[in-house]
Simulated scan of single mutants.
Amino acid sequence: MYSIKKIAICGLSLALFVACKKEETVVVDPIKSETVKDLAADPTTISGTGQPVATGKYTFFSFKNGIVANTDSATNKWDVAFRATTILTNGGTSGTGLGGAVVLTGIFDETKEVPASAVILQDTKTLLAIPTGSGKGWYNYDGATNIISPIAGKVLLIKTGEGKYAKMEVLSYYKGTPAKPDASSAGRYYTFRYVYQPDGSLKFN
């Protein structure tokens, strides 16, 4: 009888140990909040003829891991891709992921979650989830000065390639984030801030 009780107690102890061990291995990633400075978005260089030229290539970015290699463009490892004023999302016609976006009018810090009314769109051949063109998405273009300016109060809600959520605000389109960019400012360098929620929920806090 003693032996049977001892075995039962040992078995129970082992089960509790395994259960505790499983709980200890659960890791919850924290919400990620960062500012990215001077992300190159196919900046132009001057050719031998004195004309500005660009490569035509996108810079792929993951809110979870940072810059993603172009060789991974056909995966769900990236979330947004930048080339000049165009921002792609990893879904629809632009990628193989679950991504999409919607542009909201609001205050970045006050956007605590993805609103229930928000409709996340995917890129199509005729319309990007984050529209291009002056006044249509995140920026205005001044034809007199050729300056691109982020529109104040525009929050980009992003569904990532893996189906998680992030909010993003473009702060500058010029290298060094000049307060008043001019013709001498190097363009196609994004400075932006974002908050990424790794648990898949719609909340950013």
Rank of each mutant, 00 (worst) to 15 (best):
residue 94 S to T: 08
residue 123 D to S: 05
residue 101 A to Y: 07
residue 74 A to V: 15
residue 133 G to D: 07
residue 114 V to P: 03
residue 68 V to Y: 05
residue 185 S to K: 04
residue 69 A to P: 14
residue 75 T to N: 06
residue 70 N to E: 05
residue 163 G to R: 13
residue 159 K to W: 01
residue 44 T to P: 09
residue 124 T to M: 02
residue 182 D to Y: 11
residue 158 I to K: 13
residue 185 S to V: 00
residue 100 G to S: 14
residue 176 G to N: 10
residue 138 W to R: 11
residue 145 T to E: 12
residue 172 S to A: 13
residue 102 V to H: 01
residue 75 T to I: 07
residue 160 T to L: 04
residue 153 G to F: 09
residue 143 G to K: 15
residue 123 D to G: 00
residue 162 E to T: 05
residue 112 K to P: 07
residue 186 A to R: 12
residue 130 I to T: 08
residue 122 Q to C: 13
residue 179 A to L: 15
residue 64 K to T: 11
residue 149 S to I: 11
residue 178 P to S: 07
residue 54 A to F: 12
residue 88 L to T: 02
residue 75 T to P: 06
residue 73 S to A: 15
residue 91 G to K: 00
residue 108 F to E: 09
residue 166 A to E: 01
residue 129 A to D: 00
residue 52 P to C: 06
residue 168 M to P: 06
residue 100 G to R: 09
residue 132 T to A: 09
residue 65 N to I: 03
residue 183 A to N: 12
residue 172 S to I: 14
residue 99 G to K: 05
residue 108 F to G: 07
residue 148 I to E: 12
residue 68 V to P: 01
residue 163 G to T: 06
residue 162 E to G: 08
residue 161 G to H: 00
residue 108 F to P: 06
residue 45 T to K: 15
residue 147 I to T: 10
residue 97 G to F: 01
residue 135 G to H: 03
residue 102 V to T: 04
residue 79 D to M: 05
residue 53 V to G: 08
residue 151 I to M: 10
residue 84 A to E: 08
residue 122 Q to W: 09
residue 136 K to W: 08
residue 86 T to V: 14
residue 185 S to H: 02
residue 83 R to F: 09
residue 118 A to C: 02
residue 65 N to W: 00
residue 148 I to D: 14
residue 67 I to A: 01
residue 80 V to R: 00
residue 153 G to E: 11
residue 175 K to I: 07
residue 190 Y to R: 03
residue 100 G to N: 12
residue 171 L to P: 06
residue 55 T to W: 04
residue 48 G to P: 06
residue 95 G to H: 01
residue 85 T to A: 14
residue 175 K to L: 12
residue 177 T to Q: 15
residue 153 G to Q: 14
residue 114 V to Q: 02
residue 171 L to F: 09
residue 56 G to W: 10
residue 77 K to R: 06
residue 175 K to R: 15
residue 133 G to I: 04
residue 94 S to Y: 04
residue 65 N to F: 03
residue 106 G to W: 04
residue 44 T to G: 09
residue 53 V to Q: 14
residue 109 D to C: 12
residue 143 G to Q: 14
residue 51 Q to L: 15
residue 157 L to M: 05
residue 153 G to P: 04
residue 185 S to C: 00
residue 90 N to M: 07
residue 156 L to M: 13
residue 182 D to L: 11
residue 110 E to R: 15
residue 145 T to P: 13
residue 158 I to D: 06
residue 111 T to I: 08
residue 111 T to F: 04
residue 134 S to G: 09
residue 95 G to F: 06
residue 45 T to N: 13
residue 84 A to L: 07
residue 188 R to E: 14
residue 92 G to A: 14
residue 116 A to R: 00
residue 54 A to V: 10
residue 138 W to A: 12
residue 119 V to A: 08
residue 184 S to A: 10
residue 93 T to P: 10
residue 80 V to D: 02
residue 147 I to P: 11
residue 139 Y to P: 07
residue 58 Y to A: 05
residue 163 G to K: 08
residue 167 K to H: 02
residue 142 D to R: 01
residue 53 V to M: 11
residue 59 T to H: 02
residue 50 G to L: 03
residue 161 G to D: 00
residue 52 P to T: 12
residue 143 G to I: 11
residue 174 Y to I: 07
residue 164 K to A: 05
residue 91 G to R: 02
